[in-house]
Each structure stands twice: as structure tokens, then as C-alpha cells.
Design a protein around this nucleic acid. Sequence first.
DNA 1: CGTTAGTTTGATGGTCCTCAAGCACTGTGG
DNA 2: CCACAGTGCTTGAGGACCATCAAACTAACG
Lengths: 278, 278
Amino acid sequence: MHPLFSQQVPYAELIQSSVPADFLLLDRDTPGGPMTSAEHSPLTRKLSAFVALSEVELAVLERLHQRRRSFAAGRDMVHQGQSAQAAYILSSGWVCSYKLQADGTRQIVDFQVAGDFLGLRSVLLRTSDHSFEPVVDIEAAEVLKSDLLDAFSRTPRLATAILWAASRDEAMVVEHLVGIGRRDADARMAHFLLELGSRLALVGIGSKEGYDCPLTQYHLADALGLSAIHVNRVLRQLREGGMVTFREGHVTFHDYGRLVEIAEFDPAYLDQTGPLLK
Amino acid sequence: MHPLFSQQVPYAELIQSSVPADFLLLDRDTPGGPMTSAEHSPLTRKLSAFVALSEVELAVLERLHQRRRSFAAGRDMVHQGQSAQAAYILSSGWVCSYKLQADGTRQIVDFQVAGDFLGLRSVLLRTSDHSFEPVVDIEAAEVLKSDLLDAFSRTPRLATAILWAASRDEAMVVEHLVGIGRRDADARMAHFLLELGSRLALVGIGSKEGYDCPLTQYHLADALGLSAIHVNRVLRQLREGGMVTFREGHVTFHDYGRLVEIAEFDPAYLDQTGPLLK
DNA sequence: CGTTAGTTTGATGGTCCTCAAGCACTGTGG
DNA sequence: CCACAGTGCTTGAGGACCATCAAACTAACG
């Protein structure tokens, strides 16, 4: 049997695993009191912006962070073609997922930052074909397929939240495609920097003022479909235009409004002002 | 990613929506007896290439095709921003999904052909923000969220197959992104035509010889991130190079091998020689 | 028979790539 | 301490690729 299908995802079980509502009020597994807000992981923080999570859901979510792992910058975590054994929840650092072409050029498809899942699809469906490279040294929690399915069947609402976040990531890939296809270099860069800012703000490490960003101009080039040299010129233009500065690992917005304008940035698909699920 | 896990509808409600199994044997809307193999829908045909489906699974699958709908070419089925009420399984014709930008340009994200799902994510997760436009008059089956969830809970293997197909579509979007970012116009066009060929072959309306294709050069332009004029020139080059002809709604491959070469086309991620699930 | 949609070709120019080179900074080893 | 290499940023010059403008052509259609 093909590896892709070697393990079935028990959808029916998942769906039928609904439990009485009051069960949700019991917390059987976690010892100790409820968590304080400060202890929450970035993922928890991100999901809390969309869904008001219960105590149990919070506990299950935090328990997914058990198996901590570190990866060194620059060494691929997963290589193109290799089938993934586990997914990861990134707790700190930056990762890029990319595809390599025969002629040596690469296209970065997406970046992952704190609170993002990595390899979710590949672990659930065994279909993934890009590489993951940590941009800096990272900390991540390894999540086995069984952990995930277990968590999903315990707390379906949490499942919804996680899948919703994953779906949002895909919307960003589409937006990325549109950007590369139909925006010029300036707008593309502006859009990219704004989107990153929004994502980081969700996990509390960015704002409309700016954020720390360890990416090199080569990363930007590979992500935006430009040459590194042109990236440099574009950044200069944006800087001299008084809109945004990207220097020494830090992005500073000087004129957020105008940047939004030239990027035609629509934050609606990322921004949510409050929990959507009650 | 997997829309399917997610129900915004409470799980309890979902379960209550289940109907007795023998209901499946009744055909309220479509007249006529049970299906013979030759009558199988394109979707069935496509999935059968990946998974050997049981009688019951086939029946459930065909059952999803109850509510037949027609849509006229050129009139959006779903408009950007509007939340979808239903998903569709395309049984004949072509559809494109695209995003419009403020400056009027559009980027086609993907095409759907016979056997493809349309709006799967948007109906399950309520997150979709592109428009769907039939390229020609089409026939489709409307699939309500409840139908889908019901089918999934009955036949989990079928659910896996459908999600796998959806995941494959997403892989194509990623490949599309790579193409726009890192391939020149010739390679982009070659890759696009080859990919379409592979997809159509799966549902039996295309081969390595060629296929019918109702797309205009404007469609190609919007999909590939080029101007229509340049599309025309690229097509001429490929034609004069003796590789492929695209004329009067028909694509004819003259030198498949060389086309694969200049496109750096890797059919592995689409091609499957036989059923994977036994 | 004019209109519209789609295709084709030419001319011109802008965006962005490539090649080339210099600079700043860091770490390494003699 | 200094030579050296490596990484990343910066700037210039020339040219390829592709967009834009303009216009002719075909086919379909009322």
C-alpha cells in the first residue's frame, strides 16, 4: 500500500467523538491549577484571538507542546520529497518553506513564525513536497499524528480552531501568488512586510510600529520572486520614500497608511478584532 | 488545510442530521435506475485512480451528485467576499477561480475541470475570498455541507480520498506559485499546458496527444501573470519550435518530451499509475 | 453589416535581471 | 596582530524579458 494512505484518518470517529457539553468543564489530565495568561504559548495566543478557548481546550493545547525540540539555522528540518513523521508547532524563531528547482533557483512559499504549525498537512495526509529550513535557531514542539488526532477528538472546537488557522495560512499562499503574478516589486515588498507585521502582531511580537525580522535580502528575493539586488533597490526606495526601513534585523514602519495604499493591502483576511467562536 | 475537520455547526447537530442508511437507496431527485460503470461521474473516475472504492463508497459518491445545476459562461457563481452556501462538483465544463485587485487586474489562481471540487474549503470553513467564473456553460452538482459531512461520516475512506484530492489541488497552487515566481514565460506556459493535460487525462478527456481546451489567451494571461499579447508570442514560439499547438480550442502536443524538459515538469506529484488504496 | 470577442503582429520602453565590483562586518587560523 | 575567507549589503552599467500602445485581421452573431 502506498505510504500516503497507510494510515487512515478516522473522520467519522472524529466527528462522532462529540461529548456532552458539561464534559468540557472537567479537566481530567492536567495537574495543577489553570494557566495564567503569561504562560500561554504563541499558538495559544494566536488561536485565542479567534476562538474563546475553554480551560480544557487550553490544557489540551498546551499539552501538545510537550516534546520540545531545537533545530539549528540553515539545516533543513525536512527535505523535499522526504515523508514527514511529525508536525511541529514553532515556539520561537523563523522557518521558511520552499521548493527547489532543477536550475538551482528556489522559491520560498511561506514563512513560519512563533505560533505557526509546520508540516500539518504532510503529517495528516502524507502529501507534502517542500523543504523546511530554519532561518535562525528555533525552538519547536514535535506533534505526532496520534497526539493531534487525540487532541482533535477530545476537543473538536480546538480542531476547528487549528484547522481554521491552517486554512488562513493557505489564504496567505494564494495572496502570495496574486502578489507575485500581479504586483510590481514595490507593492510586493510592501505587501509582504505588512502581512508579516500582521502575523507577528497576533502573537505579540510586532505592531504597526515595526518588528524584529531576521530575514536576509536573499530570503526576501526568494520569497518575492525577485533578485537579491533588486530587493535591495526596492528597500532603498521604500526607505527614501519615508515609508518603511528594514535594517539590521528590524523593520520600522514610518508611514503605515501609505504603505497599505501602495500595497493594496487588505488586512481583513488576517485581522480579526475578537473571538469569532463563542 | 483540512476543512473537513471543522464544523462551525455544532457536532451534536451534525450527528442529528444523520439519516438511516437505507435512505441512501432512495433516489428522490434523479430518475433512472442504479448506475452502471460507464455512467460514473468524472469525480468517481478521478478518485478511482487513487483509491479502489467499494460498492457502498461508490454509491455514496454518486449520491452526492443528486442536485444538478447549470451555470452560464461568464457569470460569476460566487463573488469575492460572499460567503458560500454550497460546494459544487463540476461534471462538465471549465471554471476558473480568481482574485480581483483594486487596479482592475486579475489573477487566476486555479482552474477546475470535470471531476473537480469547487468551494470545498469555503463551505466547510467559511473562509474563502475568491470568485468563481464558469469559462463555458457548465454542469455541476450542488453539495450541501450536511450532505458532505454525512457522506464523510459514513465512509471515512471516501473522505480521505476526497481530502487527498483537495490536498493535491493545493499542491498545484503551490506549484503555480513557484512557476510564476521562478520560471520564464515559455517554461511557465509549457508547465501549465502539461499540468492541465495530466489533470484531464485523469478524468479521461485528455492524453499525451492533446486535449480540448476552451480557454482564451486572456485566461492564460491572467493565470500565468503575463499580458495577453505576450501569451500570444509565447504560444507562437512553442508552436514554431514544434512542441505544442494551441488553436481553435484544442491543445496538441507535438514533442511531449521536449516540453517536459523546458518546463522542468515533474509529473510525479500528479501521476499515479493505479489505485493506491486496496 | 456593424459589433464584439478573440487572435496576431509591430514598435517602443520600463521593470527587473545579470554581471561586476566595492564595502562592512565576523570569524578563523597562522 | 593580520591575512583571509565568508556572509550580507550596496551601487553601477548593460541588456533581456515582458508590458504597453497601436492597429489589423478573423469569426461569430444579431
